[in-house]
Simulated assay, not measured.
Amino acid sequence: MEKLQLGYVKGYDIMTKICVLTTVHHAYDGRIYHKQCKSLKNAGYDVTLLAPKPDREIANDDIKLVPIEKPKKEWKRFLRAFTVFQMAKKTNADLYHFHDPELLPVGVLLRIFTKKPVIFDVHEHYPNAIMSKKYLKKWIKHPVRLVYELIEKISLPILSGVIYTTEEVGERYQRYTSCKIENYPLPDMFPPIKSGSKEEDYILYLGGITPIRGIEELVVGFAHAVKLKPEAKLVFVGSFESTAFEKKIHELVFENGLKDKVLFKGKVPYEKIEEHLAKASIGIIPYLPVPNHLVCLPNKLFEYMAAGVAVIASDFPHYRKVVESSNSGLMINPERPQSIAKAILTLLEDPEQVRVLGESGKGAFAEKYNWDIEEKKLLAFYKKLLK
């Protein structure tokens, strides 16, 4: 019955068409494809995804993928707006849902020329994120931020709705038709923990490897800890921001005698991350206190909890709120390697505490931090806009 209410246009026997757009994220991004697109498809919508062409395509999901050529330079993404608009308009969708801030002009054009509902999906606090962009020169960051804020201010009254994450990010969008939908993990990806599957000395870092995520401080902190716990290992699952930073981190690993203690697995498909989480006992989030980190919640926090992994996280107010309320981990000062080392040693020396924290976090995930709950919000928001 829900499918009939949500996925079909009243009075017609054709499915409601949805066009989802991203020029930045991977076609099979966890949030966009595995959660939102699949939820919409399961609810009865006809879903088309415009996204960068992947190395391989997933078959049999019945979600149409229209590949977009991804520019090699980030700033060139803005130049493809009109082409993306034309591609999206050709889908003749009943609702358009875009995920990148540079697509704001595309969203406005779609709203004006198609008269159909258009949703802007906000993944982070973009003005703050601009101030952390390494490819932007320091002197130009403030002007770029002001220009973005102006474009957003002009665009939002024209668009139909905004989806955002966290209360802090959402403060910017309260005056518009909006909905808070968190990027919580999929329950089906995280089966019950098998007895003996966890390796007591396995510490996992999951996600992109960049300077502002505290990687240098993490390596130095781990080097201090491993002197007292030589059996420990630190595993990175994710890709480096640049070859220069990759070289820097490998040199740091070598200088600290960690060659056999720190492992780099590279980036893995979203559906494969559970294989690494299943082995880990401890998961770490050492993000530095840059503006965007202070208002956003990282996906990996909830993925650690979903997999029953004890968490070590930067001591930011909104991180602390989740970790303490769920009793799932310890807080650190990410700028002090000694603080990181102390937390690592505290858990490595107490496997029972690690087990309790992991089970408590998994319980909180099952109760309130999972995608099944957020999916209902997404479908209700679509139903509201399509009326």
Score class of each variant (00 low, 15 high):
338 Q>I: 07
147 V>G: 05
358 G>H: 09
288 L>G: 10
279 K>L: 15
104 L>R: 08
264 F>C: 04
293 H>C: 06
367 E>Y: 12
260 D>G: 02
364 A>E: 14
281 S>R: 13
230 P>G: 01
306 A>R: 13
349 E>H: 14
290 V>L: 03
275 E>H: 04
337 P>Q: 02
225 A>T: 01
376 K>D: 10
134 K>H: 14
218 L>C: 02
97 H>A: 11
167 E>G: 14
30 G>N: 05
25 H>E: 05
210 T>C: 11
351 P>A: 09
349 E>M: 13
170 G>R: 07
257 G>P: 02
378 L>W: 02
363 G>H: 13
352 E>K: 15
207 G>V: 02
377 K>I: 09
33 Y>H: 13
14 I>S: 11
216 E>P: 00
363 G>P: 00
228 L>V: 04
385 L>T: 09
237 V>Y: 01
367 E>W: 09
285 I>S: 00
56 R>F: 11
249 I>G: 08
231 E>F: 00
13 D>A: 10
310 A>D: 00
252 L>F: 04
285 I>P: 00
372 D>Y: 12
39 S>F: 03
92 N>K: 15
169 V>M: 02
41 K>T: 01
76 K>S: 03
221 G>N: 06
144 V>T: 12
144 V>P: 04
287 Y>M: 00
11 G>P: 08
102 E>L: 07
342 K>Y: 06
26 H>E: 14
59 A>G: 01
42 N>S: 07
53 K>M: 06
158 I>L: 14
316 F>R: 12
166 T>I: 12
105 P>Q: 12
57 E>I: 04
199 E>I: 15
175 R>T: 14
159 L>R: 14
247 K>L: 11
302 F>K: 03
177 T>H: 11
150 L>K: 08
222 F>I: 01
35 K>Y: 05
312 I>M: 04
258 L>S: 02
127 P>Y: 07
135 Y>I: 10
